[in-house]
């Protein structure tokens, strides 16, 4: 008994191949939409801002007169901000991930914490701004300082780094863990000599992507009351500061047409910084990645 009708099979072949090609085309189209929008945005921004990207623009403070305005204070402020955010968030989140993956007992509480850290990663940044305003700016009386903003941004990206670090740690095969503890190595020796070196590319990639998000973040800084115009750079983490995304946000609101071009120039600077940070992430990932 023949259940497969050969004629029908050969007849349907043409249709199957056509549908196959249609789907391929549709998926390509979806990819192109995103790509075209991105390229348009970048080209438009570069065309607008290119002529304003001068040495003066990089070395001047903000000003109400567009011809004098620059991003010097904002760039230095953003660097200060990262100098606080990076160490605080890295130490706290890698430590948290290490504890949750390697040391925490497997029980409901640990599961609950793990799930909620993932949820925390989805909380809008403005909420973290409000948290920072209440705790760091008011309660701890840090004002709108680099420290207050840095701690706020650290809290914001903490769950992101924790989740990506957890994934990196989990991807280290349990067989090499067993090999290490099976030789009488302590947990810490196993973590520091085997697991961390193997997980470091994934951890660093997560860190840099999270810091890239932090450096471009505007909403929490608006809530914290970070100034948009300042003629000094901070001398310590307790001084107030300007930040690049705040500067851009401020220029967008200005009525004079020229400020729109400055906005574009500011965005180019921010994009270059992001691009450099991502390049570092990719470089580190490729340099340290280990094959299993």
């Amino acid at each position: 008994m023949q259940l497969v009708d050969k004629d029908q099979v050969s007849k349907s072949l043409g249709g199957r191949l056509i549908r196959n090609n249609i789907m391929k085309f549709l998926f390509l189209l979806c990819t192109l939409v995103g790509l075209v929008v991105l390229v348009t945005l970048i080209v438009d921004t570069v065309l607008d801002g290119w002529n304003y990207l001068t040495w003066d623009f990089l070395t001047s403070f903000s000003s109400s007169r567009p011809e004098n305005a620059g991003v010097y204070g904002a760039i230095i402020g953003s660097i200060w901000l990262m100098a606080v955010t990076a160490p605080v968030s890295i130490i706290l989140s890698v430590g948290t991930a290490m504890y949750l993956e390697e040391y925490a007992p497997e029980n409901r509480l640990t599961d609950f914490i793990k799930i909620n850290i993932s949820n925390l990663a989805g909380v809008p940044s403005v909420v973290f701004g409000l948290l920072g305003l209440t705790i760091f700016v008011r309660q701890l009386a840090l004002g709108n300082s680099v420290l207050a903003a840095g701690l706020t941004l650290s809290l914001m990206i903490l769950p992101v780094i924790v989740v990506s670090s957890q994934e990196a740690i989990r991807s280290v095969p349990s067989t090499v863990r067993e090999a290490s503890v099976g030789m009488g190595a302590t947990k810490w020796q196993t973590v520091s000599r085997i697991i961390l070196p193997a997980a470091i590319p994934g951890i660093i990639t997560g860190i840099i992507l999270a810091l890239s998000r932090a450096i471009g973040e505007t909403a929490p800084l608006v809530v914290l009351g970070v100034p948009v115009s300042l003629l000094v750079t901070p001398n310590s983490a307790l001084d107030t500061f300007q930040a690049l995304p705040m500067q851009i946000y401020n220029w967008v609101k200005m009525p004079q047409e020229e400020f729109q071009y400055l906005t574009a120039a500011g965005i180019i600077i921010l994009l270059i910084i992001l691009f450099l940070m991502n390049s570092v992430a990719i470089y580190i990932r490729n340099k340290f990645s280990k094959r299993y």
């Binding site: 090499v176 067993e178 503890v181 099976g182 009488g184 070196p197 193997a198 094959r291 299993y292």
Partner: peptide, 20 residues
């Protein structure tokens, strides 16, 4: 301690598991 025990009692596993 497990560390002491495992120092005296070594183990070879089912799948070769060298460190990277």
């Amino acid at each position: 301690t497990v560390e002491e025990l495992r120092t005296k009692v070594g183990m070879v596993f089912q799948n070769p598991n060298p460190f990277p």
